[in-house]
């Protein structure tokens, strides 16, 4: 195959020393004919290989708190939100306890959802510092949200009633 039509991915990275460093390190150049580079969303960062090549991926020690307890709780919270969101509007009544439970579960559900996004896209094994910063920023934001929702619940009309009033405005 002539080198001009060979996919650039097959070429050794050292063939383009200008691109193999810095900003363009992870840029995929589609073909030699394309004048512009294609930049992937969230390109993978360089990976560290620990130990030898043939060693398997390190599996973290099993922990039920980070494993099936966490998983089961996540599902229970998510599923219990379905009746909790429908009931207040269907019953048409305002119950402060139910509103508080709903708000707490929504905050937990959102917090776990954001955690999952951080775990997926800013993985600890690849960018431990950014992962830690994002997790702590999330913790701070969730604490602020919890205080803000408490303020809203105690000084305003409550989430359910506020949504109902907005909907019929």
């Amino acid at each position: 195959m002539a080198s001009i039509i060979r996919p650039s991915l097959l070429r050794p990275a050292t063939a383009f020393p200008r691109f193999s460093t810095g900003l363009f390190q992870n840029t995929t150049r589609v073909a030699a004919f394309h004048a512009t580079s294609r930049r992937a969303i969230l390109p993978p960062l360089p990976q560290k290989i620990e130990g030898g090549i043939n060693e398997p991926v390190r599996v973290p020690p099993p922990s039920p708190v980070h494993g099936h307890y966490h998983w089961t709780m996540e599902r229970l919270v998510a599923l219990s939100l379905v009746p909790l969101t429908v009931t207040p509007f269907a019953a048409g009544s305002l119950n402060p306890v139910m509103d508080a439970v709903l708000c707490s579960l929504i905050v937990i559900h959102s917090h776990m959802g954001f955690q999952n996004v951080i775990i997926d896209y800013l993985p600890k094994w690849r960018m431990s510092g950014i992962n830690k910063a994002a997790m702590w920023a999330l913790n701070a934001a969730t604490a602020l949200v919890a205080v803000g929702l408490y303020e809203f619940e105690t000084t305003d009309v409550g989430v359910t009633e506020a949504i109902a009033r907005l909907w019929h405005a």
Partner: peptide
């Protein structure tokens, strides 16, 4: 599921902190 959830959670976080 993630897009819609992120949208609502972002709305909730933004509004709650702004309210605070």
């Amino acid at each position: 599921q993630r897009f819609t959830g992120l949208g609502f959670s972002g709305l909730l976080y933004g509004y709650s902190i702004a309210y605070l």
